[in-house]
Design a protein around this nucleic acid. Structure first.
Length: 550
RNA sequence: GCCUCAGUAGCUCAGCUGGAUAGAGCACCGGACUUCUAAUCCGAUGGUCGCAGGUUCGAAUCCUGCCUGGGGCGCCA
């Protein structure tokens, strides 16, 4: 029995109890969940539904719990229901009901964990969106790992997700980038507000290779801009590809300008009555919707602001039919939330249509000191620096392992260690052990048959493992709902721990070479298969490899 | 000054949409390999959940104020 099924049974037992006691069942929640108690003495699962609903129903929690327990105890698969403390229901399942989950997991395979919690949602998820004036830096790398994992988690939860990269190929930064390339090609010093670093020189030389006459052309800076931005962006895409991060759409800011979408957005906002002019500039009255101050869309010199392009881009996304736009930004952009949310509402959208996630800073440490990567890109730490330091798997894992609200210090020594203090190795090693056992089973000709006797999985290490396995779909659903993929990593570690405990408990999975295969061996082999599936699926959601041998 | 994130064991962090005795890894101490991967496991030690109030039957979790640290407050992008 899955926790979800059990929760439904708890709820119907509660409804029946309300009826029996003549209480108003309307105070019961539409859905409830069971939790896995820390202390195994508290049974396999616990429910606090009596505590939560007793007050609303104006009754005693323990009396209510007793009635619910009586109903629940009569349910198939439930072995025992105890009442503890102020009114908790402690539920123990039949061993067979608990053990059957292994077979269900094996049957589901790669789709075990999929759930419908976000079915029907069409989500645009924008992340990284680094300017093509340089490589993807640490902050962008965090989102490359977290955003990609979140996209996978949401898809697994039934949402239709478009992963999108906004490519700022217009504006002042790009102009500075082009000017820097041009200066480098001419052997001049880096201009004010320009970009330094060896890569500028390298790209400038590549532009000259493609267009030897670039400096003599009619508009040399435009030639360097056009080709240089292309080269830089190809490099970014290659780095992201190497990192395993996939985008469905690369959106060009320039297209917004070329198609006149900024004017259209301004007109729309004007129509809604939220535009005013002041001292020759055009403003959006974002203070109407709680922003600190009103924001300029058009400067007094007639140029658009960056925010104006954001408005147009927002509208473009909405017109493409997404019902929710999720935007992942670095902590240094948190001041943008106010104006962005205000803009969303100025367009007439409901609060919650636009969701902005903020990720805190990332530091790379060696011997407790910040690492300085004074190479191609000046002092900026890039995606490739992190990959070179600890590898793709460890990089993706460490970045996705922590809540986005926490700053991350990546200790290079820790994340390159091959031991259980390195969480990514710990989880991968558990997976590779399950694969090793499957190989050994095949070598020795141990057959799985059509099924197994679920009641034989009754040792504490086995029932503990089964409970962790059963939790996976709800962990995925919660990670999607809260936009917190780090929950997947923490879960994977918990599962790996439960697996290693089972392994070290002296419970043989395969028979010794001179032994007959018994039903217990077969049941444990199914449990092993189920564990392998879930570890692989969890690592897959994080975009981390699940090696078969280590 | 305002906004925002964090403050939980010696260290790094989970837990935070209110529930039972606050968890994990590392470090430290003591154990377990003739046996499917010991890159592992078991046990012990270790905490005024930053501080002070408040709400509640119940607060690490919610509210208010304060303290400490990170980040941010442009007609920059």
């Amino acid at each position: 029995m899955t926790p979800e099924t059990l929760a439904e049974k708890v709820l119907s037992a509660a409804r029946a109890a309300f009826e029996a006691l003549g209480l108003d069942a309307a105070v019961l929640p539409a859905h409830t969940a069971v939790e896995r108690p820390r202390d195994p003495k508290h049974g396999d699962y616990a429910s606090n539904i009596a505590l939560q609903s007793a007050k609303k129903a104006g009754t005693n929690p323990r009396a209510l719990a007793e009635q619910i327990a009586r109903n629940l105890a009569a349910t198939d698969g439930v072995a025992k229901v105890d009442i503890a403390g102020p009114g908790f229901l402690n539920i123990t399942l039949d061993a067979a009901a608990a053990g059957e989950i292994a077979g269900k997991i094996v049957a589901a395979g790669p789709v075990y964990g999929d759930n419908g919690s976000m079915a029907g949602h069409h989500i645009n998820l924008e992340f990284v969106s680094a300017n093509p004036t340089g490589p993807v830096h640490v902050g962008g790398t965090r989102w490359a790992a977290v955003g990609d994992a979140l996209a996978r988690v949401m898809r697994s939860s039934g949402a239709k997700v478009t992963a999108e990269y906004y490519f700022n190929d217009a504006g002042v930064q790009i102009s500075n980038f082009a000017a820097s390339l041009l200066a480098s090609a001419k052997g001049e010093p880096t201009p004010e507000n320009g970009y330094g670093g060896e890569y500028i020189g390298e790209i400038a030389q590549q532009v000259l290779q493609q267009r030897p006459d670039a400096l003599e052309s009619e508009d040399p800076k435009e030639v360097f801009r056009e080709i240089g931005v292309g080269l830089m962006f190809d490099e970014i895409k290659a780095d992201l590809g190497n990192f395993g991060t996939h985008f469905d759409v690369y959106f060009n800011e320039k297209d917004l300008h070329d198609k006149g979408e900024l004017d259209a957005a301004l007109a729309r906002l004007d129509q809604q009555g939220h535009i005013f002019e002041s001292e020759g500039a055009v403003f959006l009255r974002t203070t109407t919707f709680g922003d600190d101050k009103d924001r300029a869309l058009k400067k007094s010199n007639g140029e658009w602001t960056y925010f104006a392009a954001d408005c147009a881009y927002y509208l473009d996304k909405r017109d493409r039919g997404f019902d929710k736009l999720v935007l992942m930004l670095g902590a240094d952009h948190h001041g943008y939330i106010g104006r962005m949310q205000a803009m969303s509402q100025a367009f007439g959208d409901k609060p919650g249509t636009l969701e902005i996630l903020i990720g805190q800073m990332v530091n790379l440490l060696k011997d407790g000191q910040p690492v300085r990567m004074a190479k191609r890109y000046g002092n900026v730490i890039t995606l490739n620096d992190i990959v070179e330091a600890i590898g793709v798997d460890a990089a993706r894992y460490v970045l996705a392992r922590y809540s986005s609200d926490s700053t991350i210090d990546i200790d290079i020594d820790l994340w390159t260690k091959h031991g259980n203090d390195n969480p990514v190795y710990y989880v991968q090693y558990a997976h590779s052990r399950t694969c090793g056992i499957a190989r050994n089973a095949a070598d020795r000709g141990v057959e799985r048959g059509d099924g197994y006797d679920a009641a034989l999985l009754n040792q504490p290490q086995e029932t503990g493992l089964l409970k962790v396995l059963a939790e996976f779909p709800s962990v995925v659903a919660t990670a999607a709902e809260l936009r917190e993929p780090h929950r997947i990593a923490r879960y994977a570690e918990e599962l790996a721990a439960a697996w290693h405990r089972f392994q070290n408990a002296g419970l043989r999975i395969l028979p010794y070479p001179d032994e007959e295969t018994t039903p217990v061996h077969v049941a444990r082999l199914w449990l092993t298969d189920a564990t392998r599936v879930v570890l692989a699926n969890a690592l897959g959601l994080l975009g981390v490899s699940a090696p078969e041998r280590m």
